[in-house]
Write a protein that binds this DNA or RNA. Structure first.
Length: 438
RNA sequence: CGGAGUGUGGCUCAGUCUGGUAGAGCACCGCGUUCGGGACGCGGGGGUCGCAGGUUCGAAUCCUGCCACUCCGACCA
């Protein structure tokens, strides 16, 4: 993309009351624009990152055997009356009436819809296990939206729903999602720690929140510090095999959010290993058994001829929230530092003297070579002063910058800058291209 | 939902107390000088001062009502 033809409304200033750094940087980098409280328009740069994050989530879901569908944003109130949640959900649910005076709602989650889809078509244990997911916009009319996309009212969520014959099978489905989440967040450069979460009236131990540690996090969390650096198993796990050891490895160490915090158990952790910190919840997995299948009569036949409610679990990832979490975890005083996997562009080409024949030619060559290599290049070909170009490049956080100016070019060189380290080197264009993979 | 605030060109804000020709910086347009880490000069365009009503010779400014947004607390991907 040539910057002269792009739409990148960067800002030098943001409102004084925008406190959180990820929110400031997303506004300044021209990624989002607020349209109403907790409601944002996604501008081109933000949308590119959002799609990259979404795609990583999708790939890891697919790898773990989940199957993508797309459910509507608007749902029928009658479905929620079946589950009993229409009245229970309260003011957070945005209720809508259509021209026929029929009650609709903008979905805050999709257990009812997915259960309806399931019960219409699946009648036998032979079709299990099944895990259906979608990545769709949700709306929750939060009392107080804040922190930009971290707590918006409208947000993009990946929500997966597993269906199994019994609790033992459901635990295997749960474990697949547990491991998939470890891999998902690791691919984005995040250190997300699974922590014991509240299971509410269902009880049991099958609920975990995945928490990214950050000073600006909304949750107070407590864990064994080894969990932070434990890393992810990677894609080569046996998804049909026993994942319990991988899960046990993480759940054996203490980790809990404030609601589930057990001070006595935490005290049992050696003091040097205790970590008390703030965190951002980026994922939540949950087994809830027959909570929806029973009232909604989503039954399956078992091998013994029985007919019983299917056992379900749900698994959420805050896709739009992840952008905020990534920026909170990776930025400096100059702007965002995108991890390679989610960067909106791989390389920026900066022309310090647009209009200079030699500079233009070298930049065009670099731009073409990077694109031909299958990388995404953002070419700053604007007629602007160099300072502004450097500032913009650092602000929007492209991982690598190839800087072409008349002085070094006269000696046959360009400058290569690595955004994350600030490291700069002077070298021939061909070498710079090679080092960015072009 | 309780408490505290803020609404003035695209953005950040002053002006409101004490009513009297709507301002600054940034951004934008033109010309020129510039150009290796957010340049400078000169000129220019752009605002029903959140909305409605009221007081007044006269309202961004005072009064009433409404709306929107932000911040602090209790709930949540």
């Amino acid at each position: 993309m040539r910057l002269s033809r792009f739409f990148l409304p960067v800002l030098k200033e943001v409102p004084a009351d925008v406190q959180i750094v990820s929110h400031q940087l997303m506004l300044r980098a021209g990624m989002i624009r607020q349209e109403a409280a907790g409601i944002y328009a996604w501008l081109p740069l933000g949308l590119r990152v959002l799609k990259k994050v979404e795609q990583i989530v999708r790939e890891e879901m697919d790898r773990a055997g989940a199957i993508e569908i797309l459910m509507p944003t608007l749902q029928l109130a009658d479905l929620w009356r079946e589950s009993g949640r229409y009245e229970a959900y309260g003011d957070e649910m945005l209720r809508i009436t259509d021209r026929h005076k029929r009650d609709l709602l903008y979905g805050p989650t999709a257990e009812e819809v997915v259960t309806d889809i399931f019960r219409a078509s699946v009648k036998s244990y032979k079709d299990l296990p099944l895990n259906l997911y979608n990545i769709q916009w949700k709306f929750r009319d939060e009392r107080r939206p804040r922190f930009g996309v971290m707590r918006g009212r409208e947000f993009l969520m990946k929500d997966a729903y597993s269906f199994d014959l019994n609790e033992a099978d459901a635990r295997r489905s749960y474990n697949r999602m547990f491991v998939a989440y470890l891999n998902t967040f690791a691919r984005m450069g995040l250190k997300a720690v699974p922590m014991k979460a509240d299971t509410g009236p269902i009880g049991g131990d099958l609920s975990h929140e995945f928490i990214v540690l950050a000073e600006t996090g909304e949750s107070q969390v407590f864990c064994h510090k080894d969990l932070v650096e434990m890393g992810a198993p990677g894609p080569d796990v046996d998804w049909d095999g026993d994942l319990q050891p991988l899960v046990d490895q993480r759940t054996a160490l203490y980790a809990a959010t404030e609601e589930m915090h057990d001070a006595a158990a935490f005290e049992a952790v050696p003091e040097a290993d205790r970590l008390s910190a703030r965190g951002i919840e980026v994922g939540h997995i949950f087994y809830f058994g027959e909570k929806y299948s029973k009232p909604m009569k989503a039954n399956v036949a078992g091998p013994d001829g029985s007919n019983a409610p299917v056992h379900m679990g749900s698994y959420g990832v805050g896709v739009s929230r992840l952008l905020g979490a990534i920026i909170e975890a990776s930025h400096d005083e100059n702007g965002i530092i995108w991890p390679d996997a989610v960067a909106p562009y791989d390389v920026s080409v900066i022309n310090l003297r647009t209009g200079d024949a030699a500079c233009d030619a070298a930049c065009e060559q670099a731009y073409a070579a990077i694109n031909a290599a299958g990388k995404a290049a953002l070419y700053d070909d604007r007629d602007e002063r160099p300072g502004g170009k450097f500032a913009t490049a650092d602000l929007i956080g492209i991982p690598r910058q190839i800087v072409v100016g008349p002085k070094s070019l006269a000696e046959g060189n360009v400058e290569l800058k690595i955004r994350a380290t600030g490291e700069r080197s002077t070298l021939p264009l061909a070498d710079a291209l090679k080092s960015v993979g072009a």
